[in-house]
């Protein structure tokens, strides 16, 4: 029988995959994809516990997370376009203007 803990384990695995992608890739587009993976891991967790507790609040939160993910993707890709136009690169380790 599949228990809630199984889903949590899947969620953790997906979180780790996303984190590795986020920390090691140089391509900004793929980093944004990694973030989507992390958010999906969160969603699996939320939905699994929603079922476990027998109420829909977790699913509603998942909907909000999807909304935030959409906003994040739209803005992130917008920034990417602006960046590409100005710097001709999407390699994240060539962009270091964020200091002080």
């Amino acid at each position: 029988m599949i228990s809630t803990m199984h889903y949590v384990a899947v969620s953790l695995a997906m979180l780790l995959i996303g984190t590795v992608g986020l920390l090691t890739r140089r391509n900004i587009v793929i980093i944004l994809m990694s973030i989507e993976l992390i958010l999906n891991a969160v969603n699996i967790n939320l939905v699994a516990f929603s079922k476990h507790h027998g109420n829909a609040a977790g699913q509603v939160f998942a909907i909000f997370v999807i909304a935030v993910a959409v906003a994040e993707a739209a803005v992130g890709l917008g920034i990417l376009l602006a960046l590409f136009r100005n710097r001709e690169t999407v390699q994240v380790d060539e962009i270091d203007l964020l200091k002080w």
């Binding site: 986020l22 994240v92 380790d93 962009i95 270091d96 203007l97 200091k99």
Partner: peptide, 9 residues
């Protein structure tokens, strides 16, 4: 404070 977003992550 390297300025690289990934190091912050």
């Amino acid at each position: 404070q390297t300025g690289f977003a990934q190091s912050y992550a």
